[in-house]
Design a protein around this nucleic acid. Sequence first.
DNA 1: TAGGGAACAACATTGAAGTA
DNA 2: TACTTCAATGTTGTTCCCTA
Length: 233
Amino acid sequence: MQSGIAVTPRLDDLDDLALVERARRHDGAALRLIMERHNRQLYRVARSVLREDAEAEDVVQETYLRAFTHLDGFRGEARLATWLTRIALNEALERLRKRRPSVELKQIDAINEQGEARVIFLPTARQEGDPEAAAARAEIRRLIERAIDQLPDPFRIVFVLRDIEEMSVEATACQLGLRPETVKTRLHRARRLLRRSLDRTLSNALTDAFPFAGARCARITQSVLDRLDEMKP
DNA sequence: TAGGGAACAACATTGAAGTA
DNA sequence: TACTTCAATGTTGTTCCCTA
């Protein structure tokens, strides 16, 4: 039985197309929700390419700015996440190309200063509960992140998209412009390389790698909203 | 030219969905 | 509930290409 009263859907219940429609009308809540839904994935993708926390954050911000100022380009043929990931990936790869000549020197410097490969991912483990358990968890994640960092670029990007972001083979291949078979081969070899450098007992900690939540997520979301405000005519 | 790595192709495995 | 089917994914052998 219908009451005839129109019910306004909750923002959380809206699908991508509806959210984009609101975002086109500069609905701040919609913009914020889009970012909150995709921050972690975009950060992980950018981070997997650049291996730098700060630059990955920049890429995430730049991705949203590009996306939100070109929302007309989103026709809804692909998922919003796919569209955003493509932008983030292009931005990250572009930055990688620009900085390439200086990367090796910077890495050598870091190794010389610290005596070992630099640990890039800041531990942001949940600190509640047993401090020893939290410290152990942070250490395990640090080892995993370092092992992932040491993977060759093509393997690392595929590994992050497939095993951490849980994208399908097809979606990963589409994002990277590869054949699905190539994605499978790279993933298999990335896992083999990782297995060689990690104890098997660490495998359960994989899903906690590359955390992106809390203050960092909120900071980027607010920063993008502020910059969009500045761009308003 | 040999060796190593990447890509390709074929086959095996797994898990979800449908059906009796 | 057990069985079948099929799509997605994993594994492995082969081929190709680049580099020293």
